[in-house]
Amino acid sequence: MEISLTVNGDTQSADVEPRTLLVHFLRDQLGLTGTNIGCDTSSCGACTILVDGQSAKSCNLLAVQADGAEITTIEGLAGADGLHPMQQAFHESHALQCGYCTPGMVMASISLVEEYPNLDADGVREGLEGNLCRCTGYQNIVKAVLSVKK
């Protein structure tokens, strides 16, 4: 099936099998491998991207569902002027170790502070409930997100 969507500002048209998971479309067809796959059950959040500006788990969507959507992946954040403020905050707070959960965690965090501008530390923790990290113990992730929140 033909789909057309905007990914990181570029229009992409492609022919996909309806069963194709959005994450596989991004990774295997568009070569955007920054978005990772960590589970089968939408529990871990490693595949989190922005769909029309809001976080979504790209392993829990079919590519055909994203037809017409505006997608942002981790590759779409940093520009000529450097890292996105959330990426920079993760760097400065040592909020990543192995880095596998990081793209999803960063995307979820960007969406989180947009959706809930007044979060305290507990709110950040609750808001990141759907993104698992096995390395950091989360303390520095929370610190990073709080440093960016509006």
């Binding site: 491998t33 920054g34 990772n36 992946t73 590759e75 040592h94």
Partner: peptide, 21 residues
């Protein structure tokens, strides 16, 4: 000191196993 590993991991530039073409 901040980690030099971070920029690649924060931008999707790092290549994990399944990322290899």
């Amino acid at each position: 000191r901040l980690r030099k590993e971070d920029p690649a991991l924060l931008t999707g530039e790092a290549k994990f196993m399944d990322d290899l073409v």
